[in-house]
Design a protein around this nucleic acid. Structure first.
Lengths: 214, 214
DNA sequence: CTATGTGAATTTATTCACAGCA
DNA sequence: TGCTGTGAATAAATTCACATAG
């Protein structure tokens, strides 16, 4: 069995598994059962076993899963063996926060360059990352960049994304509160904090006590 | 037909609809069809019609939807008529960014108070929001607070959440990269940027060109 | 003729139930 | 016995197909 038909829901849980297993490994833990792991990541143990089963037999009956073995496997499938370079577009409050954070912790992803429209910002360096002028974006060669993090205001998101695509970027993590209209070969994930907060308030007010999201 | 059995997926789209309709209204638009709206929010038009149908007939056949009517309706169901007060726990880079942003735009939600462990920060005011000492959290009366935004480091998230619950908070928007173990009447939504970025990288590398997330 | 509203069909995801290996 | 791996059953969400109202 190979990754030729991995359900989307499964794929979206893999990074969570990966990070959690890294944490367990750092505590010195070497094996774990699907039920113990399920409690930690708050995913039903059957779902975990099924998720792993799409990639073949990763565990051992009566034993559970070897954490290092899972990590080695997930590192490959999540392309964490090689460094994934991303750019950040929009160095406002949120963009600056992400630059300072820069996904350092056990994560082979790095913001290598940032862009901003503000001429006072371009040329500066924040947390080791140089800020370029937004006007340069579409002319740069960013074909070695896998994705862009979009932290520009809503009204600039579409045009910024188009410039990034012109420079070679194929994916976006979009923090701007708009949906982008982009070519079908471009993949976008939205991180929409306002929507999340309103959804939270909706569920709290309508009493969905049981369900934990994601 | 009332909101007595609204699917979770529908509920999670309502804030997106609401914001997008606010934007359309601000452009002076008064009516919209499900298909035109679907293109804007990137949700299939049938899904939109079905979503609205759970709340009764909000549109008119042959006409579409009256934007103001939808807005009035969504404002109620999303509890945007009254101000929703939230607190922010953890005034690091991300927390500071959220304080500066503070959900101002057409959103009746406000961060009214922040907490941080750093004694140098408590007492200060950022973007009009006062920062309190983390030690005060569990003793404060936050029963008028609907939710807390958790922007503390992973290893502090669980204990910070427990203190917030002690103070009366019932919901969390959790930015910390851990799953929280909390009483079943507490609702948590996770905003997990690292997971999102890794999922994006996964899909880009495994070629899922078609699908747009969320 | 347009565009909603909705049962029915389909697809996707989760959960059950248990066979089988260590 | 303990725990995985997986077909079968169920549940949830989406999409189809079309009747119907304006």
């Amino acid at each position: 069995m190979q990754n030729h038909k991995v359900p989307q829901a499964t794929a979206e849980r893999l990074p969570l598994y990966y990070r959690s297993l890294q944490h367990l490994a750092s505590l010195g833990k070497t094996r774990i059962s699907s039920s113990e792991f399920g409690e930690i990541v708050q995913v039903d143990s059957t779902t975990i076993r099924k998720d792993f089963s799409y990639f073949g037999a990763l565990g051992r009956k009566g034993y559970g899963y070897n954490i290092q073995h899972l990590l080695d496997f997930l590192r490959k499938i999540l392309y964490q063996e090689e460094l994934s370079k991303v750019i950040l577009i929009g160095v406002g409050h949120l963009g600056t926060a992400l630059l300072n954070h820069n996904f350092q912790k056990n994560n082979n992803t790095r913001i290598v360059k940032a862009y901003d429209t503000d001429p006072l910002k371009s040329g500066k360096v924040i947390a080791g990352t140089e800020i370029h002028a937004m006007d340069d974006l579409e002319h740069d060669d960013n074909r070695d960049i896998i994705a862009a993090i979009l932290t520009v205001p809503a009204d600039q998101a579409q045009s910024a994304a188009e410039k990034a695509i012109a420079s070679g970027v194929k994916g976006f993590l979009n923090f701007a509160p708009v949906r982008l209209s982009l070519p079908p070969d471009v993949y976008v994930r939205h991180v929409d904090m306002t929507v999340e907060l309103q959804a939270l308030i909706y569920f709290l007010n309508h009493g969905m006590e049981e369900k934990q999201s994601q």
